[in-house]
């Protein structure tokens, strides 16, 4: 456990060093936030009836920008790990007396958390002051958002480790890594808040793991989801995290066996 904490810290430290990336990221996120807000605003001409009001949609979009670094838009935030698996050098990791899956979880958590931590506050401040973003309706909603965002972070990290592990299978892994970003973007709420989708589609998407990464936490902040839903949301995230970690561990076992059999 101490080792994992150390890995996490080192990774955080390394990621926090990329300040140019952080500044540019903030500017980019603000620009695209403005674009998306303008586009959605175009759909709300004169009091059209929709499950979300324009200020709610606006806030939702800005959350998406502030926490963009945490969304599953990129399945490989840690290119090194992917390369390690692809060129077989991961075999040397086997020599270390550590549980690889936990090690990679720690690394991934850090590489998702660090850029988010650097960027979220400036975007939220600017958007709240100048671009129509609203703060959570009350303290309980904020707390519900905070807890479910932590849940989302863990869920996303588990998912990313799973994606990295698919890279043991070059062909299938490549196919997956091309299909997944689109699927994740569409079903997580990253493209369109799930509440705005037709009900039958929305119900399906809400069950998928991706909704727990984006839409569910945002809904607490925006106020479209009652705080009493928190146990269900956390349960959904936890359940999927568990399933994904179990799947990941199975893949890891098989991948390593494959590696040692073919001799990497």
């Amino acid at each position: 456990m101490r080792l994992l904490w150390l890995v996490f810290q080192m990774r955080m430290k390394r990621q926090l060093a990329y300040q140019t990336a952080a500044y540019a990221g903030i500017v980019t996120q603000i620009v695209f936030g403005l674009v998306l807000v303008a586009i959605f605003a175009a759909f709300y001409p004169n009091g059209i009836k929709a499950p979300m009001t324009l200020p709610q949609v606006t806030t939702y979009i800005w959350l998406g920008q502030a926490f963009f670094a945490m969304t599953p838009y990129s399945v490989f935030p840690d290119a090194e790990l992917r390369e390690q698996i692809r060129d077989g050098s991961v075999a040397t990791e086997l020599l270390r007396p550590v549980d690889l899956h936990s090690l990679w979880m720690a690394r991934t958590l850090a590489s998702k958390l660090a850029p988010t931590a650097l960027r979220c506050l400036p975007v939220i401040v600017v958007a709240t002051l100048f671009a129509g973003m609203h703060l959570p309706p009350d303290i309980p909603s904020f707390l519900a958002w905070l807890l479910s965002t932590i849940g989302a972070l863990v869920l996303i990290s588990a998912f990313i480790v799973l994606m990295i592990l698919t890279q043991f299978w070059t062909v299938a892994g490549d196919g997956l890594s091309r299909a997944v970003p689109g699927i994740a973007a569409a079903t997580s709420g990253q493209l369109v808040p799930l509440a705005l989708l037709p009900d039958n589609i929305r119900v399906v998407f809400e069950w998928l793991p991706f909704a727990g990464m984006v839409d569910k936490p945002y809904a607490f902040w925006v106020g479209t989801r009652p705080v009493s839903d928190l146990p269900f949301v956390l349960g959904h995230q936890l359940l999927w995290t568990g399933v994904i970690i179990v799947a990941g561990r199975m893949l890891l076992g098989r991948g390593l066996r494959r590696l040692t059999v073919t001799g990497g």
Binding site: L176, R178, A179, G182, I183, A186, L191
Partner: peptide, 12 residues
């Protein structure tokens, strides 16, 4: 795979 992802985006 790319086609599938893209078409889903189009669907949203």
């Amino acid at each position: 795979a790319t086609l599938l992802g893209m078409l889903l985006e189009w669907a949203t």
